[in-house]
């Protein structure tokens, strides 16, 4: 099988690897880099369980080829907490009850993190719109919104 060399920075670490053209960024993260935080669910860009940040923007990693990440900077859920310390948004998810089964949560946390980077003090409507690409079948939407609001509020203090 033909593979293509790519250089990609994942969670601050630069990686050189060869990827098959038909493998998505999600495949590359999970299978080649053993970063299983991003999850596989719908594979059509509807559920957001595979959300990661590529060059500053959230994307569904199931709808991007691994080769397209050549030269990109990628942040996955594994790249948020550093030195064993959770980020404020991760803590807030736990404090506000935003986590049940947890399968969608890596994607949710990444989207919430990016949302707060883009807008330090989002309104509830902005949060609901900005998080609509991350399905939660446990139905924690209200708690997740609360976690984002609480994090924004704590940042204001």
């Amino acid at each position: 099988m033909t593979t293509i060399p790519i250089e990609v920075t994942v969670n601050g670490r630069s990686r050189s690897l060869r990827v098959a053209p038909q493998h998505t960024l999600l495949d590359v993260l999970r299978d080649d880099l053993a970063l299983t935080g991003a999850k596989e669910c719908c594979l059509v860009g509807e559920c957001g369980a595979c959300t990661v940040i590529v060059d500053g923007s959230t994307v569904d990693s199931c709808l991007m080829l691994g080769v397209e990440a050549d030269g990109a900077v990628v942040t996955t859920i594994e790249g948020l907490a550093t030195g064993g310390r959770l980020t404020p948004i991760q803590e807030a998810f736990l404090d506000e009850g935003g986590v049940q089964c947890g399968f969608c949560i890596p994607g949710q946390v990444i989207s919430a993190h990016a949302l707060l980077q883009a807008s330090a003090h989002p309104t509830i409507a902005e949060i609901e719109e900005g998080m609509a690409g991350n399905l939660c079948r446990c139905g924690c939407y209200q708690q997740i919104t609360q976690a984002i609001l609480a994090t924004a509020e704590a940042g204001r203090r």
Binding site: L86, F93, V99
Partner: peptide, 23 residues
């Protein structure tokens, strides 16, 4: 009381292993 979920940390860090994550 309503403490943080036991097992919650793994869920917000991506380190929780579901079946498909086990190698």
């Amino acid at each position: 009381a309503s403490p943080q979920r036991v097992g919650g940390r793994g869920r917000v860090t991506g380190l929780q292993h579901y079946v498909a994550d086990i190698r």
